[in-house]
Simulated scan of single mutants.
Amino acid sequence: MTYASKQDLIDRFGAEELEQLTDRDGSAEAIVDSVLDRALEDADAKINSYLSGHYTLPLTDPPDVLERTASDLARFYLYQDGPTEAVQKAFDHAVAFLRDVAAGRAQLGDQDDPGETPSSGGGPRIVAGDKVFSSDTLADY
């Protein structure tokens, strides 16, 4: 299961750009699926490398943010002669997001972390250690 599809990339970046990036020798005059599929596989592998320590893969219901992330990564991988500034910026943002997920600073919506109890509602989850002060330890005060 891929996080983004050919149609996702067409919807985001246009068929003309994808044709230019995948038809490397200019002979096909169409989007070359094998080149596009390779870029999508590379994007999935990068995403999975960040998610593997925190989520059970493959994700059963990947959130939309991974489609956007995979699209930006795949587009970057299609540029052979160096990406444009906008493509580089989108790639850097996607990698920064994945680093945040791996570090626990960002989450993937409703995906449950294996071995942990999901919090109720959409708010923050607070984890605390044992109580330091109790009625017993404060009895003399």
Rank of each mutant, 00 (worst) to 15 (best):
V32N: 05
R125I: 12
T2Q: 14
A45T: 05
L73C: 05
G121S: 04
S71F: 09
V35N: 08
L108T: 04
L21Y: 03
L66T: 02
E116G: 00
F133A: 06
T56S: 15
K131F: 12
Q111E: 10
A45C: 02
Y50Q: 01
F76C: 09
V35E: 09
Q107M: 07
G122Q: 15
D25T: 07
D100K: 15
P118W: 02
V87P: 01
A94F: 02
Y3N: 05
A30R: 10
A103M: 13
G53H: 13
L138C: 13
E41Q: 13
L138Q: 14
D8N: 10
E41M: 06
V87N: 02
S49C: 13
A106N: 08
Q88V: 00
L18D: 11
M1W: 06
E41I: 03
E19Q: 15
G122S: 15
L40M: 10
A70L: 06
L36W: 07
V127W: 15
V101I: 06
A4K: 00
V65S: 14
G129Q: 05
F91L: 02
M1I: 05
V132A: 12
I126A: 08
H54S: 05
A102G: 14
G14P: 06
A96D: 14
V32T: 08
R12F: 04
M1S: 06
T69K: 04
D92A: 07
P62V: 00
A15V: 10
T84H: 09
E17D: 07
E17S: 09
D8A: 14
Y79M: 01
V95Q: 01
A94R: 03
Y77A: 06
L18V: 03
F13I: 11
R125G: 01
A102I: 06
E16Y: 03
S34P: 00
K6V: 00
V65T: 05
R38Q: 10
I126M: 08
D110P: 10
D42R: 04
V132Y: 08
L59A: 13
V132W: 15
E29D: 10
D44R: 11
R68N: 14
V35T: 15
T117C: 01
R75Q: 11
E67M: 12
K6S: 05
H93L: 09
A139Y: 04
G129K: 04
